[in-house]
Structures are given as structure tokens and as C-alpha cells.
Design a binder for these strands. Structure first.
Length: 622
DNA sequence: ACATGTGTTGCATAC
DNA sequence: GGTATGCAACACATG
């Protein structure tokens, strides 16, 4: 067979679409009636080394890849997902040549990094005479389209999203497409072999994920993988001990569709779902759908989710049953996802950081990210302006703040890769405006590493040699952090979550705390949210002393740390500081922020640690 | 221009 | 135990 317009050789590039159902790009690829069809995944070493990815996230991704590969094999025993170990910018041109590719097809990705990457790939394809076909498939509505219908501006409120969506198709997303029932062959085995190719690699010394590896990363030993068969890597091959990935949440399209199906059967749940009325303390079973990781990895189509839910809502409507409504119902949750995507699509790289970000309020946080222009010391990605705040941040990250509600949530995050939305509110508020006064960027990085469902991001800007750029953290994760820290999207900073009262409202017995902080399991419910108040005699009786900062190894029996600060005092300091920062009224793209002159406006002296402590009254400037 | 109502999800207190 | 309020008060949408 000779490749030609009538015999197309189609390379399908899977990225954020690890599924066969409802993929407009895959549909377009198969509509070409390929003589040869090769679905690939490019394991970009720059991403592997530079994106923060914890063990649970790796495992979930591998499960998605395995499931997709098996689905291809079921439709055509000669087929699978062909995994290539190299950056797309270098390996795709080699593949086009080797496999005589006529068409490259992929799903559109409006993330800032992805845009740069895809523009570069499209340029290379044009040079090579390969036709590129791109389709929107990741969102309810094309984020760029939403932005255009929002007057070219980032979508900063739900009202704006709804109005823009109304102008696209009366607010109706496209209906989902069926999975293909047959898949064409790849080349025969000999032609698929890439043994003659040189592998371009990244510098493994820049591996941010080395901390998670127990052995060396072996998956890059060959461009076709360690087995030289394009296989999905094992956890062992990427150097991570599988016992470190304890999450009960399973990846893959099959798992996603099963989970969606089981929720859809529960019509009462789907019809009456109201996010603020779902418990952040519920476990076994959890109170929300757990489908967000599948949206994140593309193992579930958001339009399939939307329309399956709509069918339930319509049925209930006919039965004269009450449904909950936007924004608290399930479709509302999906629209928030599109809101963050479209906001990022309008703003680009600046959306994921403070410096230069036009939509973000500037707050004088502790531990702010270093200026990307390099005004700070070069080896730190954030400014350690306060030893105290750095300690608070580490204790928060490791789940040893001494506030059981916060610690239980942070331990759940690390262990399971997922916490309930309101739990995320609690820990995010606590780290930023309602406790530590630490920059939201620090929290977003921790979530990026540990959450299964923060939206996909890649490590570098265009040009695979530029490894100094801060990784993008992308839309939903950074958007929610801005929301909770009251720097964008939301501003009512006087609504402050208590690490004691909020959890108690949902779980007065403290079952959630007992589950994730087992050293406290015997405490009476009177003290479970405030164990430092329990009398010493009771602490002894219940087998756990409240002492130290959580770093002490086992003393005499079990210990739980003392609270790292007086919350009520910190709350007042944070409120005053937020008020002051709002009065100063700077935004991320103001010249004073970029130049560092903001320090003067906030009354900072060199080397002072007074922010978040003694706010000075400032006059409004405009 | 300006006032008014609303905004995915606060807390403590009072009845 | 639900519901209203003060807290000290922002940003957006709409008339």
C-alpha cells in the first residue's frame, strides 16, 4: 500500500482524551477512512521530570492508558495505544517520516503550554507536508468560543459563562458521539519498529519527581519502551514503588463509564444534587460523584456526563419532581469547569501566577512565587520571607498542623489523591486568607502534585530546551485557589472557614478525623476537633498525648501535635491584612507589582516579616 | 450615575 | 432545631 489521499496514513495523537467514546477528533480521524491508523501517546520526558506528579497520579494515568490500549485491542487485535518515549516536538516529525504519515489528528487543548506546543507541532507538520486536523472535545463549549462570546474577555463569573453559552447554541453543548465499532490496522510489525531511531532525551537532573522514585526511571531506556513494544509502563519501570500509590480511585474509561452509569441510575441523587449540601466529611461512600479525575484525564467526556444527567432531569421534570438548579446542581459544576478553562484561554500563561496576571488582586502573602523575570534568588521558586510561615506551610502540607479537621483532609489528599470540594475550601482558606497568610501559589503546587483531578498541565513553554519556566498549573486548580484566597472570582474574605466549627457541622462525632488521624480515634467527641483542650488524664486514657509539632517520632505511645497557632488570633490578623490589601488595590499586572515597589505600598521594610501581622492603614488610590 | 439585589457552599448568637 | 441577625462589607449585574 502506498500512502496517498485515497490511502491516508493517520496518526492519532492522544493527550487529554484517554477514551474512545464521544471524541470528535477521533471521529474526524476515522472519517478519513484511514488505510493505516496509529493511535499514539508521547511520553514527554520534560513533562515527566518537570510536572509535579505524585504516585497516585502516575498510577491513575497508567490505568487510563492501559484501559484505552485494551479497548483498541478488543476492536482490532493488531491495535493498541502506541506509547513513544520522547517529546512530541522532536518525535512526531520522526514518526511522520518513519510511518509515512499523511494526517495528524488531535483534540484541541487551550492550556497555555499546550497551545505553544501544538502551534510548534502544527508548524513542523506543515513543513513535513502532513495535514493537521484538530477538534474541540475537552469541554462543554470551546473555551475560545466562550471568550469571543464574552466580548473577548476572560469569564470571571457564572453569569458571564451562561450568557456566552446562550449565544453559542442556546446553552446546549454538542450531543455525545458513539464509540467506534471498528478500528483500521496499523502498519505491519516490521514497519512499526522504531529501532533505527535516535532518542532525544531531557536532562534527568532536573527531575522534580525524583522524591517519589525508589529506583531509577527505566521507561526511557528505549524509544519504544523498556520492552521495545510500545507498552504502557509499569509503576516499577517509572521507578515508583506501587505501594506508595494507595488511592482507591481507579483510572480508565471502563471504570469511568461504570461509575457514571451507577450515578445516573440514582435519579433522586442526580436530580436533587446541590454541591453545598454534600458532606465534605463523608467517606464510604463519598458524597459527590468522584468523576472529576476522569474528566481531568479525559477518560470521561464532559458532554456525555452533561447529557446523561440532562436525560434524568428531563424525566423527573415530566414526573413533576423537583430538580435542583444551576449553579449548585451537577450541570452547574460542569459549567464552572468551563468558566475556568475559558478564563485561562483568554489570559494564557499569566493566569497561573500572580506576577503579570491582569485578573488577580495583589495580596502581600508570605512565600510568594519568585518573579519570573528573575528578580529573586535563582535557586528558589518562591520567596522565603518568613521562617514561621515556611514552617506553617510544611506542617499544612504534611497534615500536622495540630487542627485535626485540616490534618485529616491533608492526609486524605496525600493517601487518596482526592478530597471533597468543601474540604478543599477548608484547607485552602486555612493556608491563605484564613490562617497562615501563605500565597495560594504554594497550595496550588501541592494540589498539583497530589490531586488526581487538577487539570492536565505540562512543564515548559515552547522550545523543549527552556526548562526554567515555571510549570503551568492550569485552569481549574489555579482558578479555585484564586477563588478561595479571594484574589479573583470571589472576594468575600470575611467569610472565613473555621478549622473547628466547619467540620463539626457535618460530622459532630468526628468519624472522618478518626479515620484519617487514627491516633485520635479514642478521643471523646467533645475534644475530637480540639484535642489540645483535653485534660492530660484523658489524653493518657485515650492513648494519645497532644504535644510537639508532629515531627517527633513515637515517644511513649501515640502523639498528636499541638495546634501551630491560636486560630482566632490568626483569623483576625488575616482579616485585617486582607482588608488592607484590598484598600491598597493593586493587581497582578500593575507596574508596582512587577517592579517590587508594592513593598513600599504595604509598608514592608527590607527583611521585615511584618506582613500578615501589622497591617498599616492605607488610603485608596483611585 | 447611582441604588439595589445577588453571589456554588461562614460563624456566632439569639429566638 | 430551623431561621434571622450582625459581623463589616466586595464585585458584579441590572434597572
Amino acid at each position: 500500500m502506498k500512502p496517498s489521499p485515497s490511502n491516508p496514513v493517520v496518526l492519532y495523537w492522544h493527550r487529554t482524551d484517554l477514551r474512545l467514546h464521544d471524541s470528535p477528533a477521533l471521529h474526524a480521524a476515522l472519517a478519513l477512512k484511514p488505510a493505516v491508523f496509529i493511535p499514539v501517546w508521547t511520553w514527554d520526558p520534560h513533562y515527566v521530570y518537570r510536572a509535579r506528579v505524585g504516585p497516585n497520579r502516575w498510577k491513575f494515568l497508567l490505568e487510563c492508558q492501559s484501559d484505552l490500549s485494551q479497548s483498541y485491542s478488543k476492536l482490532n487485535p493488531k491495535q493498541k495505544l502506541w506509547l513513544v518515549r520522547e517529546a512530541p516536538q522532536t518525535v512526531l516529525p520522526k514518526l511522520w517520516k518513519q510511518w509515512q504519515v499523511t494526517h495528524l489528528v488531535f483534540e484541541n487543548d487551550t492550556d497555555a503550554y499546550a497551545r505553544d506546543r501544538d502551534n510548534e507541532v502544527a508548524r513542523l507538520a506543515e513543513d513535513a507536508g502532513v495535514e493537521v486536523i484538530v477538534r474541540m472535545g475537552r469541554n462543554l463549549f470551546d473555551p475560545d468560543h466562550l471568550v469571543r462570546k464574552n466580548g473577548g474577555k476572560p469569564t470571571m463569573s457564572m453569569t458571564q459563562v451562561q450568557k456566552a453559552a446562550e449565544k453559542i447554541n442556546n446553552g446546549q453543548p454538542e450531543k455525545p458521539l458513539e464509540s467506534p465499532t471498528s478500528i483500521p490496522d496499523p502498519w505491519d510489525e516490521g514497519k512499526m519498529d522504531l529501532s533505527n531511531l535516535q532518542q532525544d532525551m531531557a536532562d534527568a537532573n532536573l527531575d522534580l519527581n525524583a522524591v517519589h522514585r525508589t529506583t531509577s526511571d527505566k521507561q526511557y531506556s528505549h524509544i519504544m519502551g523498556p520492552q521495545k513494544n510500545f507498552s504502557v509502563p509499569t509503576m516499577e519501570e517509572i521507578g515508583i514503588d506501587p505501594s506508595q500509590a494507595e488511592s482507591p480511585h481507579r483510572g480508565g474509561e471502563t471504570a469511568a463509564l461504570n461509575l457514571l452509569g451507577s450515578h445516573i441510575q440514582n435519579e433522586e441523587y442526580v436530580g436533587t444534587f446541590e454541591k453545598p449540601n454534600t458532606s465534605p466529611a463523608a467517606f464510604e461512600p463519598q458524597s459527590t460523584t468522584l468523576l472529576s479525575p476522569h474528566l481531568h484525564f479525559g477518560s470521561l467526556s464532559v458532554r456525555k456526563f452533561w447529557w446523561d444527567v440532562q436525560s434524568v432531569l428531563e424525566k423527573r421534570k415530566k414526573q413533576k419532581k423537583n430538580n435542583s438548579s444551576i449553579p449548585t446542581n451537577i450541570p452547574g459544576q460542569l459549567l464552572f469547569r468551563d468558566m475556568y478553562f475559558a478564563a485561562q484561554a483568554a489570559i494564557g500563561h499569566r493566569f497561573a501566577r500572580t506576577y503579570g496576571n491582569p485578573v488577580i488582586r495583589f495580596i502581600d502573602w508570605h512565600l510568594q512565587s519568585s518573579d519570573p523575570q528573575g528578580n529573586d534568588s535563582e535557586n528558589e521558586n518562591y520567596h522565603k520571607d518568613s521562617d514561621e510561615a515556611e514552617i506553617w506551610f510544611q506542617r499544612w502540607k504534611e497534615g500536622r498542623t495540630g487542627f485535626p479537621w485540616i490534618d485529616a483532609l491533608m492526609r486524605q489528599l496525600r493517601r487518596e489523591g482526592w478530597i471533597h470540594h468543601l474540604g478543599r475550601h477548608s484547607v485552602a482558606c486555612f493556608l491563605t486568607r484564613g490562617g497562615c497568610y501563605v500565597s495560594w501559589e504554594r497550595g496550588a503546587e501541592v494540589f498539583e502534585e497530589l490531586l488526581l483531578d487538577r487539570e492536565f498541565s505540562f512543564a515548559l513553554t515552547v522550545g523543549i530546551h527552556n526548562l526554567t519556566e515555571k510549570p503551568d498549573e492550569t485552569a481549574c486548580n489555579v482558578g479555585n485557589w484564586m477563588w478561595l484566597s479571594c484574589t479573583a472570582f470571589f472576594s468575600q474574605f470575611y467569610r472565613c472557614y473555621s478549622p473547628v466549627a466547619f467540620g463539626k457541622k457535618w460530622d459532630p462525632e468526628g468519624l472522618f478525623i478518626r479515620h484519617h488521624c487514627p491516633e485520635l480515634s479514642q478521643f471523646d467527641k467533645k475534644y475530637i476537633y480540639e484535642p489540645w483542650k483535653a485534660p492530660i488524664a484523658d489524653q493518657k486514657k485515650w492513648g494519645c498525648r497532644v504535644t510537639g509539632d508532629g515531627t517527633d517520632s513515637v515517644q511513649h505511645g501515640k502523639v498528636y501535635p499541638k495546634p501551630m497557632f491560636d486560630f482566632d488570633k490568626r483569623r483576625q490578623i488575616c482579616l485585617d491584612s486582607m482588608k488592607n490589601a484590598y484598600d491598597v488595590g493593586l493587581h497582578g499586572d500593575d507596574e508596582e507589582v512587577k517592579s517590587g515597589a508594592w513593598k513600599e505600598r504595604f509598608g514592608w521594610l527590607d527583611n521585615s516579616e511584618n506582613q500578615g501581622k501589622k497591617p498599616s492603614k492605607r488610603q485608596k488610590t483611585d
